[in-house]
Amino acid sequence: MKWNIDSDRPIYKQLIEQIEYRIVSGLYKPGDKLSSVRELAMDAGVNPNTMQKALAELERSGLVFTVRTSGRYITKEIKVIEEVKKTIAFDEIERFFEKMQSLGYTKREIISLIETDKERGQENDKHPNSN
């Protein structure tokens, strides 16, 4: 997964989101050791102090913990990860609804559109070669 710092929002916040995403999607597994601040900063192409700030924030929210002298690890508490996953999902849904509403759809219409799309998706699954 590539780091993607491109919006105008604070860089440390974008780093937090992308590390969270790596954790909930399973790219970083519970209990995994994280690379050093410098390595992560280099990888993301960001200032080490900014990476440090993002990791401190993740530590405060419980997704990451530090073992003195040995480094930083991803939490082993699945519940914490699930919570974050849900928060991200709700944020995504909210953003989706906002966009659809700006296109002029009501909530009900949006939901029925999703149902239609799901059926279409299943059709396609059955006939992978047809368009």
Binding site: D8, R9, P10, I11, Y12, K13, N47, T50, K53
Partner: peptide, 15 residues
């Protein structure tokens, strides 16, 4: 700081 600018002005330093 770069993030202060982004936080307060809602734009990048370049912007």
């Amino acid at each position: 700081s770069v993030d202060e600018i982004r936080e307060e002005h809602h734009q990048s330093v370049d912007g």
